[in-house]
């Protein structure tokens, strides 16, 4: 139940750091006050280390190392700001920026400035760089999927699969640049295994999967994150006690999430917790 924690000593950018055994380099960097960009990592999911934006240089390692997936080792020497690291992070951000719409991945804009990423340099007047080009899929009243924005971080697949939900309604299909998140034969979501828990949306870093309410408000120009408040409360639909974060704007609930670091939900909800709030508001109650 409890184990004695063994400490591991390492240096990050020349600074001595001591963290518990089993800690990832990523978390060690956080604890050392060195923020690391990441897209595919989330505290409630198994690292897939696919995005490679969190890579660091580890002495003795030929290639760069994904900090999210690699555990610290004693006497490890980690560089997070070496020329190689800066180059790879910049390139990964450029690659993504040149292929998909990152406009709703708010953290990334800052990182792209930080690393000087210039996604436009891949375009030539006569030979534009190939981009992912997809129409939003609107197949029901709860979700939209806009794979123009998908960075293929695998988070939604993990949340739908054995990191939380075990529904496996979506998976990565195809290969390479043509790989997409998809149901079987791209069947519409209501005809798939999807149970609308919204956990894919909860973990999506770019808005490629969105609550339809948010999508509609964004489309109408009514989505104003700066004016939103978040209140943590408890779901009313069964006795498990899931924490809900109610995102409110103009005294209305506009979105529901759950804290990823809470022991009850680990950030995941069911369809009732995610969408069942609507009766609280007009037209039901006003």
């Amino acid at each position: 139940m409890t184990t004695t924690e063994v400490s591991v000593n390492l240096t990050i950018d020349g600074q001595a750091v001591s963290v518990p055994e089993g800690t990832s380099i990523h978390m060690a960097c956080e604890s050392a006050g060195t923020p690391t960009p990441t897209l595919c990592w989330a505290e409630n999911l198994t690292p897939v280390n696919a995005c490679r934006v969190c890579v660091v240089e580890v002495e003795g390692s030929r290639a760069l190392v994904p900090s999210c997936a690699r555990a610290v080792e004693d006497q490890m020497v980690v560089q997070t700001d070496s020329p190689r690291v800066r180059h790879s992070r910049k390139m990964v951000l450029e690659f993504l920026g040149s292929s998909v719409d990152l406009s709703q991945a708010t953290d990334l804009a800052e990182w792209m400035r930080h690393y000087g990423a210039d996604p436009d340099r891949y375009d030539q007047p006569d030979l534009p760089a190939e981009r992912i080009s997809e129409e939003p899929k609107i197949q029901d009243d709860l979700y939209i999927r806009d794979y123009d924005k998908c960075v293929l971080c695998y988070k939604c697949v993990e949340a739908c699969g054995d990191d939380a939900q075990y529904t496996f309604a979506i998976a990565v299909s195809g290969r390479g640049f043509d790989a997409r998140i998809s149901t079987e034969f791209d069947t519409v979501l209501p005809d798939s295994a999807c149970v609308y828990c919204g956990n894919c949306i909860g973990v999506c870093p770019t808005g490629a999967i969105q609550f339809k309410t948010e999508f509609d408000m964004r489309s109408a120009g009514e989505w104003r994150p700066d004016e939103q408040e978040v209140t943590t409360t408890v779901c009313s639909f069964c006795g498990v006690g899931c924490n809900l974060e109610l995102h409110t704007q103009d005294d209305q609930i506009v979105k529901v999430t759950s804290p990823a670091d809470h022991s009850v939900t680990h950030g995941h909800l069911c369809i009732k917790g995610r969408f069942g709030w609507q009766y609280v508001q007009p037209p039901t109650r006003r």
């Binding site: 709860l142 209501p190 999807c194 609308y196 369809i271 069942g276 009766y279 039901t284």
Partner: peptide, 10 residues
């Protein structure tokens, strides 16, 4: 009474 308030596809 409460869960009827949203358009569940399932």
């Amino acid at each position: 009474v409460q869960s009827g308030g949203f358009a569940s596809p399932i």
